[in-house]
């Protein structure tokens, strides 16, 4: 004989609780937080380097750089002018979770940050399950990848609010089709905001910077 005992609990309820705490801390100070996700090599760190170069004087930018091994990304971001950079080395884990973020958060002076970038581990599957307390997820894809990537990783493209298509300077040197990738992404998520950029040539980055500036300005107004 056995008896059913109802539990009805989210498996990641502990993570979600911590993420809610983080979100509250950031909201209270008017900080906009973006969680950057992509496959390895799409150019997350490059985009953040460029963004630091362009906006470091206007906005106070904090960065949390996640990597499986090495602090290379965090070092690159410091070299690019990042004043408030904290690495998270996951030591094998394929994603950041809220516990890891809440551990490094006290090391950042949150009263002096307008915009917080969290660079997740390069992986389009696992990070989609873990809320880090961000305002939105930004998913990167580059033109050297397949244009069917949104279809292969629907959960991530469904949960992201923004898609940045990087390496547009290389368009034409592969079978990557710009219209097709957008169509694929929008079939999963019609509301996805899309930027087309090249971190190498700078093409398209102005629109990205403007959007970030507006995002911070809107947040400040709400405060």
């Amino acid at each position: 004989m056995s008896e059913k005992i109802s539990v009805e609990k989210k498996v990641l309820s502990e993570n979600d609780k911590l993420a809610a705490d983080i979100r509250a801390q950031l909201k209270q100070r008017g900080i906009v937080a973006l969680n950057f996700v992509s496959s390895p090599g799409s150019g997350k760190t490059s985009l953040l380097e460029k963004t630091l170069g362009a906006l470091n004087n206007e906005l106070r930018i904090g960065l949390i750089a996640g990597d499986v091994q090495t602090e290379n990304d965090a070092n690159r971001l410091k070299a690019a002018g990042g004043k408030m950079v904290r690495p998270i080395v996951t030591g094998g884990a394929c994603h950041l979770d809220a516990k890891m973020v809440s551990r490094v958060l006290p090391e950042l002076d949150l009263d002096k940050i307008d915009l917080l970038f969290i660079e997740n581990v390069g992986n389009l599957v696992c990070p989609s399950s873990y809320d880090l307390g961000e305002d939105m997820k930004v998913v990167l894809i580059s033109t050297t990848e397949g244009d069917d990537k949104p279809l292969k990783y629907p959960a991530m493209f469904r949960r992201a609010a923004v898609m940045v298509i990087n390496k547009i300077d290389l368009l034409g040197s592969s079978d990557f089709d710009m219209n097709r990738v957008k169509e694929n992404a929008r079939s999963i998520n019609a509301d996805l905001k899309i930027f087309e950029v090249s971190c190498r040539t700078g093409q398209g980055l102005e629109a990205w910077y403007n959007w970030l500036n507006e995002l911070v300005a809107t947040q400040k107004k709400v405060q």
Partner: peptide
């Protein structure tokens, strides 16, 4: 994973089920 309404073709779709990652119950 095509998130479009089969009736009116709108992409404004609310997911009702399919995001679960829950412990439902235990049998003891």
């Amino acid at each position: 994973f095509v998130f479009a309404c089969p009736l009116c073709d709108s992409g404004q779709i609310e997911v009702m089920r399919g995001e679960e990652l829950d412990i439902a119950y235990l049998e003891v």
